[in-house]
Amino acid sequence: MATSFHEFDLIQWIRAQCPNSKANLIGIGDDTAILQPPLNCELLFATDMLMEGTHFTFPSATPERAGRKALAVNLSDIAAMAGRPHSALISLALPKSKGPEFAKAVMQGIIDLANEFQVQLIGGDTNSWDGPLVINVAIIGIAPESKSIKRSGAMPGDWIFVTGELGGSLPAHHLTFTPRINEALILNQTVSLNSMIDLSDGLTSDLQHILRESNVGAILDATTIPISNRLSSDDSNQVRLKRALSDGEDFELLFTLSPEDGKQLLNQNPLSINLTQIGEISSRLTAILQHPDGSQTTLEDSGWKHEL
């Protein structure tokens, strides 16, 4: 007769993989965790829910990669604020048909990435049902007081930069991307960032968040958009550009800063990945795409949106 395996067995297994950190007074094992944040720091909170069939599918994803992505997208939100990740709570709705090894594999993907970025797993919830896998992560980050970077600080004349390359994420990159935690910290230590966001829904969509919160506009140069080699070279330049603008799930950083600081980054990139200036913030309250022939068109918000 097979030995039964229930939620408390899973919790005990997780607890054995995640010993308490000195940064927390109590982690897994009580009704709530108790944190001890560093002095003179502000706390950053974010949460994301990922659902099988929307954010990942099996078998193109593995349970480990699904779990990894669930934590990675939350780490990307902390990176967008130039914070350091501190702790995370994980809630799982597990398919009854998959069994305990599947549950452990999902958690192993989360645990491995948590260890890589020194994130303490401090609790959460587990349930099982007849539906697909659902993973919710609530993450806590820290930043020195008044040093976190918001969407609302962009100013006319700012240069717009992006890390890495854009487009073609859906075949695999959206499951394996590296959250830009370290890059955001280096940038924030090197120059004065005015605004920043991570590119989860696509450049055209996420740029709009900065523009609305800062009450500004933008002009992007189509010739400078860093198009990923994940996109097929058989596609036309127009198709490749459109996908770089709107595919989403790149999880790169989009940020603005003064021209003086922008020149510093162009002269000496402090990162191990590409940095590209793609445009400029304007006082005109619209987003414009400037084409190679000098013509301009309104930049349509063509990124990903969940339909309700």
Rank of each mutant, 00 (worst) to 15 (best):
K242I: 04
A80Y: 07
G67A: 08
W159Y: 12
I273N: 09
L50W: 08
S128I: 09
R84S: 15
S295T: 15
F117C: 07
I122H: 01
L231T: 05
K69P: 01
L211E: 05
E183P: 00
R212N: 12
P95N: 13
I26T: 09
H55L: 04
L285I: 12
D48W: 02
L203Q: 11
M51N: 11
E116V: 06
Q277Y: 10
K98T: 14
G141W: 01
G141Y: 06
E52P: 02
S91H: 07
L299T: 08
Q290L: 11
T54G: 01
I210S: 06
L92K: 01
N74E: 15
M81W: 08
A88W: 00
L207E: 06
Q108T: 13
Q12D: 15
L289S: 04
K263H: 11
E64N: 07
N182Y: 04
L231Y: 07
P292D: 08
E252F: 03
T297I: 13
D77T: 09
A184G: 10
A16F: 02
D235M: 11
G164P: 03
I273R: 08
L257H: 06
S91T: 08
F58D: 06
S236K: 00
L133H: 03
L44N: 08
M196L: 08
G167K: 02
F58G: 05
S228F: 05
A143H: 10
G262T: 09
W159C: 05
F177A: 07
Q108F: 11
I149N: 04
L220N: 05
S4P: 08
S214F: 12
V137R: 00
L166R: 04
D48R: 02
